[in-house]
């Protein structure tokens, strides 16, 4: 049986390669499998050997900056031409803008921010994500082709024995002359990106349980040379910037050590820390689900423990 997966290749983002590797795993049992990429102004330095069989590319000065209308039109045209069974896109700010525009135009199913991808017994894409406010995981299928999903960077890592392939490059001619967009980019300011929590080796995270004593969380992080993260509750209360929020509506992190303080561990938080190597949790509530994830847990009051811990480090 034949199966074709198309992956959107985003410039300077690891997620495209992660998806290509995962696609190799998903298609391992199909004799006629093809993994294709679409690269819109993503540069030509992708190499002759990649994890893709084919890369469809376009380089056009009009596409220098991302535009949902232009990029979705090119993607939709290619999908209509090559007819992939599955389309995978990174759940980045670009992907989260692009993917629903493509899916909507093709009237097909799209599952956002998946934490697992599988091929089921019918050969369909089974996309799993947290749902109902993080209470449950749901495996979602699409009735139509292409079956679409977005995945965040660092979330899906395969240990499948992946192979580099001799990649065929195919240039596409964009049909974008007729697009009359109502949004015109005037100015772009590159943000000064200080090393964010995404790359931190040690993260000390505070939640609802320490919301009024975040300074202790900061002090502990400083002692450990780590970064501070918070749960959504803390951001919603206006006590921390959204840029350090971890979880489904925030950042995905993969530190060596994650210390969760006063965080109950609702799924919408824990999906953001699945990549953490070790987790230490401190929480008053012995039934808090964070203890199911923790390698080491303390049931107790963080306000009693932290000052002494900070002193002794």
């Amino acid at each position: 049986m034949s199966k074709k997966i198309l992956i959107y290749i985003e410039k300077q983002n690891s997620v495209s390669e992660e998806l290509a590797k995962k696609a190799q795993e998903l298609l391992q049992n199909f004799d006629d499998a093809e993994i294709a990429g679409i690269a819109i102004n993503a540069g030509l330095d992708l190499g002759s050997k990649t994890y893709f069989d084919k890369i469809y590319y376009v380089n056009d000065s009009r596409l220098e900056n991302y535009s949902g209308e232009y990029y979705s039109k090119i993607s939709i045209d290619l999908i209509t031409e090559i007819n992939p069974d599955i389309v995978l896109i990174g759940a980045t700010s670009l992907g989260r803008d692009l993917a629903p525009q493509i899916a909507s135009a093709l009237q097909t199913g799209l599952t956002a921010d998946c934490t697992a991808l599988d091929i089921n017994e019918d050969g369909k894409l089974a996309a799993t994500r947290p749902t109902f406010g993080g209470k449950l995981m749901a495996t979602i299928l699409s009735k139509n082709n292409p079956q679409m999903a977005t995945v965040r960077p660092h979330v899906i890592v395969t240990d499948f024995d992946v192979q580099l392939k001799d990649t065929e490059y195919i240039e596409i001619k964009p049909q974008i002359d007729d697009i009359k967009t109502h949004v015109k980019l005037l100015e772009t300011i590159k943000k000064e990106i200080s090393a964010g929590i995404e790359d931190a080796e040690i993260i000390v995270a505070g939640g609802h349980g320490v919301k009024d004593n975040l300074d202790l969380v900061y002090q502990l992080a400083e002692k450990l040379n780590g970064k501070v993260g918070v749960s959504r509750a803390v951001v919603d209360l206006g006590l921390a910037e959204a840029s350090i929020q971890i979880g489904q509506t925030g950042k995905t992190v993969s530190p060596k050590l994650y210390i969760a303080i006063g965080i109950s561990g609702a799924m919408q938080h824990t999906v953001g820390i699945m990549g953490a190597k070790k987790i230490i949790a401190i929480n008053k509530d012995k039934d808090a689900p964070i203890f199911k994830l923790a390698d080491f847990g303390i049931v107790g009051d963080a306000l009693e423990i932290l000052p002494q811990l900070i002193k002794s480090l």
Partner: peptide, 8 residues
């Protein structure tokens, strides 16, 4: 176009 095949 999508449906939940399993919730767990």
């Amino acid at each position: 176009p999508t449906y939940v095949s399993r919730a767990f």
